[in-house]
């Protein structure tokens, strides 16, 4: 069985697809047949939206379903919000097998159960062959703000920067599949709430926090520097990178700092809170390899720099557009 255009027609077949695959796994008291879901929310909430178009849709360490949930959960978490609800829109290319679709839906269910985030409204559309790549998912998340003031504009001079784990695993995994390489790592795709919740509750003075997604470490640090008007210096030798990710980057001539992560974050905190933070980070499997990679050296001028292994300092440049291999 596979998805046909008629499954998107709105009639009987659409209902069948929804019943047999989506509701079968994702049903809850808030996901109803009405045109909109009614919620009552108290206090400040955080809202985020993201679209997921990853190719291939299945990869070592996850799939597009898991990625969508983790993506939304992480965006809420790093803003200091407890993930509560999400909406999802599915754009499906005709011909996607029911089996694959169901696998994705089960991943969504499993990943959502880790944080308790609930799918409260959803939509499916089917497009003709070639109009999208198997399946695209748009997801919007709503979370209850537990801690205010975490912002990329809030970095302070003297802050240390902690990266929660090895960088680039997701990007290297995905690009390896596309290049027909066999790499001995998996995507880091994961929901970070289980680690971030205790960080928020322990009252660590988190000035800024971001999950490292597209553009990787280089993008986030440049954005931090710009938004807070600070100079940031990281040390090449302190940045956690798995050996095979390093090898992958050497092969294609690209920088690990530009590779995407999907379950790794960076935060800026005062040095005095480092011990408290590491007690938590080290006690979670997801972040046991967390490391201090650098610090905010000065306020008043923007810049993100990296100190090379041999002591010279250069700009931490963001990758231009597509990551294309060097030839010579």
């Amino acid at each position: 069985m596979y998805v046909k255009l008629s499954h998107g027609g709105g009639a009987k077949e659409t209902r069948e697809l929804i019943e047999k695959i989506f509701l079968k796994h994702l049903k809850n008291e808030l996901l109803t047949n009405e045109d909109a879901t009614i919620l009552s929310l108290e206090g400040k909430v955080a809202v985020t939206t993201d679209s997921f178009t990853v190719s291939p849709i299945f990869f070592k360490g996850g799939d597009i379903g898991k990625l969508s949930v983790a993506g939304v959960v992480n965006d809420l978490s790093v803003m200091g919000a407890k993930p509560l609800y999400m909406s999802m829109g599915f754009i499906i290319e005709e011909g996607l097998s029911f089996e694959e679709l169901e696998k994705i839906v089960i991943s969504i269910k499993e990943e959502a159960s880790k944080t308790g985030i609930k799918l409260i409204t959803a939509d499916t559309k089917v497009v003709p062959k070639g109009f999208c790549d198997k399946i695209y998912i748009n997801a919007t998340g709503i979370g209850k703000l537990l801690k205010e003031g975490i912002s990329s504009t809030n970095l302070k001079e003297g802050d240390i920067l902690i990266v929660s784990g090895p960088i680039g695993n997701h990007g290297a995994t995905i690009l390896s599949i596309r290049n027909d390489f066999d790499i001995d790592i998996s995507s880091d795709c994961a929901s970070l709430w289980e680690v971030i919740e205790p960080l928020l509750k322990e009252d660590i003075e988190i000035h800024a926090m971001r999950d490292l997604t597209r553009g990787g470490l280089a993008s986030v640090l440049n954005e931090f520097a710009k938004s807070s008007n600070v100079e940031i210096l990281i040390n090449e030798e302190d940045i956690p990178i798995e050996q095979s990710v390093r090898g992958f980057c050497e092969i294609l001539g690209i920088e690990p700092y530009s590779l995407a992560c999907e379950g790794t974050f960076i935060m800026a905190i005062p040095k005095s809170d480092a011990e408290k933070a590491f007690n938590i980070l080290k006690s979670h499997k997801l972040t046991e390899k967390a490391k201090v990679v650098g610090e905010v050296i000065k306020k008043g001028k923007e810049g993100a720099y990296v100190k090379t292994l041999y002591g010279s300092v250069r700009y931490l440049e963001e990758a231009p557009g597509e990551l294309l291999p060097r030839i010579c």
């Binding site: 300092v313 440049e317 060097r326």
Partner: peptide, 29 residues
């Protein structure tokens, strides 16, 4: 590198791109 005019800015082996990417930083520390 995002919007190259000359070829040396295009390739990451090009002298201009390499200079741009790894520009020297004068730090007042």
């Amino acid at each position: 590198p995002e919007n190259p005019i000359g070829s040396c800015m295009v390739s990451s082996e090009g002298a201009c791109a390499a200079y741009y990417k790894y520009q020297e930083v004068e730090l007042c520390m």
